[in-house]
């Protein structure tokens, strides 16, 4: 956090510019939080994350059922929201199904951010052949739609958790690399990078200590965007029956299982759909206000 907070205070500030330092705009996050839509976004995302995290713990107390236990009474109005296609308690499955989605999405996003920002910074810093190899590799990965790429991998490797995380992470990477490269190429011409080079600081250290802290703005925006897309991608694949596999409880899978009975027992579809909708809209609101905050920071530089 401290890295990000200090982002707008650019290193070019010398002791002589105290007057300007007073006017230094607040950090990226505080700028973001000033916007109403960021607060709404955080509230929405927070609510769903809370349900997803606390949900599994509440199971015995709230419903008395586990998420995979079934009574063989499909589509009955038992319990608060009734039972699903195999007679399992809908509320139980709903409470149990969110955390897995969030963890997978976070892992996929994390993987994509690491691969993408490393490749992007390296391409920007190194230039030349390595740059063109990385960027051409990106072009190839970008030539297949993300979902099709994921489906190809699932065909070959089967619908397993690590396959989902890896393939979504990898398909995020080129998109993140492009943003990182363009942001980093503005930074690497700065004098402090030259200075570090003169002291023979190792390349990875320059990238991690000098370049990375100065491109956190665009990277945070990218992080939010990719998180939204990861959630959508994993939920979509589960919805297609190719992500999380039964009997695991998952929001995407629940929608797939229960949509045939939308008229009889709508809660099995409506609860997970609402949760995914609130989650993605919330994270998109946060991302949007992050982008605005980042843009105003850029302007004030």
């Amino acid at each position: 956090m401290s890295i990000i907070e200090s982002q707008p205070t650019t290193p070019e500030e010398s002791p002589g510019t105290v007057a300007r330092e007073v006017e230094t705009p607040p950090g990226l996050f505080r700028r973001m939080l000033r916007q109403k839509q960021a607060k709404i976004g955080i509230a929405m995302t927070g609510a769903v994350v809370l349900v997803a995290v606390i949900g599994p713990l509440l199971l015995p107390w709230a419903t008395g059922y586990t998420s995979t236990e079934f009574s063989g009474r499909p589509f009955q109005p038992d319990g608060v929201f009734g039972t699903d296609n195999l007679g399992r308690d809908i509320l139980s499955r709903f409470l149990d199904g969110g955390l897995r989605l969030l963890i997978y999405a976070a892992l996929a996003t994390g993987l994509g951010m690491i691969l993408g920002s490393a490749a992007g910074m390296l391409a920007a810093y190194q230039g030349g052949t390595l740059d063109s190899i990385i960027m051409r590799g990106n072009d190839v990965l970008l030539a297949l739609p993300q979902l099709v790429f994921a489906l190809l991998a699932i065909t070959v490797l089967g619908p397993q958790g690590w396959v989902l995380v890896t393939v979504i992470g990898i398909t995020h990477a080129p998109r993140i690399a492009r943003v990182t490269r363009s942001a980093a190429s503005a930074v690497i011409t700065e004098d402090f990078v030259r200075a570090a080079e003169m002291y023979a600081v190792p390349r990875w250290k320059i990238l991690a200590k000098d370049v990375l802290p100065n491109i956190t703005g665009p990277l945070m925006v990218e992080l939010g965007l990719r998180m939204t897309y990861s959630i959508a991608a994993i939920a979509s694949l589960s919805f297609l029956g190719l992500g999380l596999q039964p009997p695991t409880a998952g929001w995407g899978l629940m929608i797939n299982e229960n949509r045939i009975a939308l008229t009889v027992q709508p809660w099995g579809v409506i609860l997970p759909v609402l949760a995914i909708a609130v989650l993605t809209v919330g994270s998109n609101l946060i991302t949007d206000s992050l982008a605005r905050a980042s843009a105003t920071v850029e302007e004030s530089k």
């Binding site: 979509s236 919805f239 995407g252 929608i255 939308l262 008229t263 993605t280 998109n284 609101l285």
Partner: peptide, 23 residues
């Protein structure tokens, strides 16, 4: 448009089905 841009396509689809063809 901000809300719609965030929603996965199947969420939009299911919402439309719920409103216009079933419930």
């Amino acid at each position: 448009s901000l809300v719609l841009a965030a929603l996965p396509e199947f969420v939009i689809g299911i919402a439309l089905v719920t409103v216009f063809s079933t419930t």
